[in-house]
Simulated assay, not measured.
Amino acid sequence: MKKLVCLIGVMMVLVGCTPPPQTLSVVGNTWLGYQPYYAEQVLHPEAIPANIHITMLTSDVSVVRMVANGAAQAALLSLDNALSLQTRTDLKLCIAQVINSSHGADAIYAPPGFDINDRQQPWVVGMEDSALARYLLARWMRLHDIPERQVRREIILPNQHATAYAAGVTDIFVTYAPFSQKLASMGAEQIFSSREIPGEIIDTLVVKQESWQQHQAALKRLTGPVWDKALTAALDPQHTYYQALQTLSGINAEELRQSLASLTLYNSAASRTFLQQDYARVQQQVSEQLVASGIHQVITPLPICEGVL
């Protein structure tokens, strides 16, 4: 365990480092579903294809910025974030992998006693400046007939939610695992989650199409045998990878168990099945909600990378 903590400490120091030239850079935030990749990078970096570098960043904002400015060629993103990025830019992304679907891991929390019917004053909503946070908030508001004037958004990074909650100046937090577990441990209560919008929040690996063509063999290895091995190990409570997820997330074993129960993680075979059978429907559904929520007027589709199926 001591070795594990030291290795992860090294990884944290290296977060944000520029990969060598000719390397395909994959970036993602601290979302629990992505962490088998990070654990693999820490514990068995030799298993990662030599021309691929995976970096964990603190927020979706940082991830989107790095892809948009060309510092990264691939990203771990929720589908709504990926569609938003595809729509706002001319990056020409494609989807290489479906990593997980969320069944409660993305959620809205409030202090005990929060009354959704008490609308005398606007609520201060702490949230990341991302398409996913805006999407989740918009879905909650639409489903509960909450008018726009009732919320006042305040941009707070997920790793600062606990501090803001302790300060008591924010009414509601739009968050996700593992940060939601910290809020819950402080007494916050879940008032809405992705469980109420089943099938709408999935997480993906998206790649610039040009980069996919250049690195297709390495990416197929990454999303196939490398991912499957890391995922199997990460779901085993007795395995070092499970301990790595605890350390990366900053939560204990029971909190990790609860978090993992709130999402479905896909191995490579399940990812291909999802892309074949469900992706078109889910992409259409999420696109319609992004438009209905006022986030975009029209959505640019995100195709499946050539050769994935």
Rank of each mutant, 00 (worst) to 15 (best):
K3N: 11
V10T: 08
M11K: 09
P21S: 03
P21W: 02
Q22D: 10
S25E: 11
N29K: 06
Q35C: 09
Y37I: 02
A39K: 04
Q41A: 14
H44Q: 12
A47T: 10
I48V: 15
I52Y: 13
T55Q: 10
M56H: 02
L57C: 06
L57Q: 06
D60E: 14
V63T: 09
V63Y: 09
R65P: 02
A68G: 07
A71Y: 01
A74F: 10
L76P: 03
S78E: 04
L79P: 01
A82M: 11
R88K: 15
D90H: 13
K92F: 06
I95V: 14
I99N: 12
N100P: 02
S102Q: 05
H103N: 03
G104K: 12
Y109K: 00
N117H: 15
D118F: 15
Q121H: 14
Q121V: 11
Q121F: 15
W123N: 00
V124F: 13
D129I: 08
A131C: 07
L132M: 13
L136T: 05
A138N: 09
R139Y: 04
W140Q: 01
W140T: 00
L143N: 12
E148I: 09
Q150P: 05
Q150C: 07
V151H: 01
I156S: 04
P158L: 14
H161F: 15
T170L: 05
I172V: 15
F173I: 02
V174N: 02
A177V: 14
A177M: 14
P178S: 11
F179R: 09
Q181W: 06
K182P: 06
Q190R: 15
S193Q: 00
S194N: 03
P198W: 13
I201H: 00
K208F: 07
Q209C: 12
Q209L: 09
E210C: 05
W212Y: 15
L219W: 03
K229M: 06
K229P: 01
A230T: 06
A234E: 00
H239S: 13
T240G: 04
Y241K: 00
Y242F: 14
S262L: 14
N267R: 11
L275Y: 03
Q277T: 07
Q277W: 08
Q283N: 08
S287V: 02
S287R: 00
Q289N: 06
V291K: 12
G294E: 06
G294K: 04
I295P: 02
Q297Y: 10
L302C: 10
I304Q: 09
I304H: 09
I304N: 06
E306T: 09
G307D: 09
V308E: 04
